[in-house]
Every structure is written in C-alpha cells, then in structure tokens.
Design a protein around this nucleic acid. Structure first.
Lengths: 186, 186
DNA sequence: GGGTGTGAAACTCTTCACAGCG
DNA sequence: CGCTGTGAAGAGTTTCACACCC
C-alpha cells in the first residue's frame, strides 16, 4: 500500500483521494474515453498523461491574446498555470497610452488596433478579456471581427455574441457567495 | 410588452433572458425560497432584491482578509464586485518586506504576523489566499489558527484543511480547458 | 487479492405543460 | 388573459455493487 511516488501505476481510489472525487466517478469518467486501465493494477501514469493530454487538447498548444493590462491582466500574464497546460499568451493589448509600449512578463503591450494583424500573424485562437465592464462588449465585438471564436471573460458583465462564438465567464463573486451561504448556515 | 426599466415588476421570462437561463428554471429556483411572485404579473423587483439579498447574505456584510499582495491580490483589492455584494476586504497581508507598509486601494499592507490580531479586531470571517502555490498551505494553516472558517483559494494547489473549514478553489484553467475542448470539437 | 469496467438503482437537475390565481 | 407555481416526464449524474480480468 501507499506506493512510492515514482510508481508507474495509480489506482482510481488514489486518484479520487487526490482530486476530491469518488473512486467510482473516476473510473466512470476514464472508462468513457476507452479502457486503458488494467484490472488489479490501476492506470498507467504514462498512458493517463498521454490520453488526457490529447483529449483536453494539450497536444494542440493554443495561442491566446490578453486584452486589458490592468492588475488582473498582469496577474494573468504572470500566471504559470496556463503555459503548463498548453495555453500561451502571445500578445497583450490595451488602449491606455501609458501602458502601450511597456513590457509585462516579456510581452510588449500593443494598442488594440494591432490585434487584427496579430491574430493572423501569431495564429491566435482565444482571447482573454480583462478590461473594465464598460469596455468589455466593445472589445468582444472587435475580437470576433478579428476572427476569434472562443473568449474567456473576466469583466463582470454578461456579454452577447453570436451562437458560434463560445464565451466562458469567470465570475469571482460566485465562489464567495457560496462561502457566504455556507457561513450563514453554520 | 418590453416594460419600461422603471417598472416595478419583472417576469420570469424577462429574468431568464437577462440571466441566460430558461423561464422554468427561474421560476423553480425562486419558488424554492417561498412564493413571492404574483400570478399574471411577475416578481416585485423590490421583493426580489430583499429576498435574494437576505438569502445570499448581503444583510450580513462579511469582512475578508486578503493574503498575498501580488498582481492578483492588487486586482482583487481593486475589484468592485465584492463590495457591491456585501463582501469587504478589510485587511491586506504579505510577508514581502518591499510591500509591507505600502498602500493599495486604500489599505496598508501588513505583515502576516498581524493577521491574528486583525481577525479579532476587524471581525474577519473569510480569507482570500492569493499567494504563490508554495506558500498557500502554510498561509491556510495560519488562517485557520486565527479562527477563519471559510477560505477562497486562488493558488493553483489543492489545499488540505479540517472538515469544518470550507475552502472554495478558483481554478482559472478549468474554463480555458473547456474552451479548448470546444475548439477542438469544432 | 486487488482494482477495473459497467449494469442497475438512486438521485439531481432540467424541461414540459398546465391548473389556477390575480 | 398573463404569468406563477408545480406535478410529471425526461435527461443527466452519482453511487452501489459485483462480474471479471490481471
């Protein structure tokens, strides 16, 4: 029991413990993608890594444009998590003259007018909107015009876009409200 | 149709349009908290606001401590959304000597050693961890020692805490991976 | 024995559709 | 008539439990 961390296999039970799910859940989810677990042994760590990598798109290496270089934008540029999982921020854009030309995390901030060209040149598929709520919709429209089909939105507004463009909203208050709810029930 | 925005009532249908859900969903969710809708009319905007406010805890006005004043921490301090919904950041903490004493969004950054005292003095119930992944667990343990029972974690690590402490994790990569998945299926 | 993969049961969430109230 | 509240159906998810393979 409690195999060394250098072990070549891992059981659904242990995966469950690590990810905060149940063993049955892990098994069902993994079985959905085909059965690459060995009975009596577990899942080969190497296989798991490969399989999940290709499913989730790590083999694709997406390029992202960050729009809005405020504190949040800077935090996202510095955030290591994206790159680790195959998402790379290749351009930073802002319309604030004081920011344009400055360097943040190895990227030079460019005016929004440069976005269109960069999308083609740098092969950008994804935009991150980290602007104020007021500018967000305008920035989204522009991004779509530039050919971007998927957007991660941090601005606290509900944006409207055509069906074929996918928007994921990150609302920081949702989690806090959950905690609040929990605290009052205690 | 399309009542003026000064209207005193709003229908489930319109709420659905605004929030991106279905009318049935809205009705069921609201009915769960007791029936304060009027048939043939809709929901009184004033009632809605009161009811939801008390459910979600806006009447409680929670005080939060922010730990880790990097770019992300600064972004959270500047973020208006929290205060709007009754969450107030009343203290900012960091162990970086260069940051201690500086002022960010009207708060003076204090060393972590001051946390314990502040929790009591400022009546803090909630901590936000915006430190590096390496420091996060240590900071969490300290927070719990100070009597904090609910934590919002932005560090990209899975933290361990006793059952009675509630942790909400914000993982910025989850949403991007969803977009990635969607892009590959297109 | 150990641990996967999977039917079946239990549960939760969503949608439909309509009775009934204002 | 318009719109809520809700039973009932449907869809999706989680859990149980066990046959089966290594």
């Amino acid at each position: 029991m409690e195999a060394a961390s250098g072990s070549t296999s891992i059981s659904s039970d242990r995966l469950a413990r690590l990810t905060g799910h149940t063993a049955a859940q892990v098994r069902r989810d993994l079985a959905y993608f085909g059965n690459f677990g060995k009975r009596g042994v577990g899942y080969s760590v190497a296989d798991l890594s490969n399989q999940l990598g290709s499913i989730v798109g790590i083999d694709h290496n997406w390029n992202m444009a960050l729009i809005g270089v405020g504190n949040l934008g800077k935090a996202l540029l510095a955030y290591r998590g994206f790159e680790q999982r195959g998402f790379k921020i290749v351009g930073a854009y802002d319309n604030d003259a004081r920011k344009i030309g400055s360097t943040v995390s190895d990227l030079t901030v460019e005016p929004l007018s440069k976005l269109s060209g960069s999308v083609k040149k740098l092969d950008v598929q994804l935009a991150i909107i980290a602007t104020s709520a007021e500018s967000a919709q305008e920035v989204l429209d522009l991004s779509i015009n530039c050919g971007i089909m998927a957007v991660l939105n941090f601005a606290p507004v509900r944006l409207t876009a055509p069906e074929e463009v996918q928007i994921a909203n990150v609302d920081l208050t949702v989690e806090v409200e959950y905690l609040s709810y929990w605290l009052t029930r205690k």
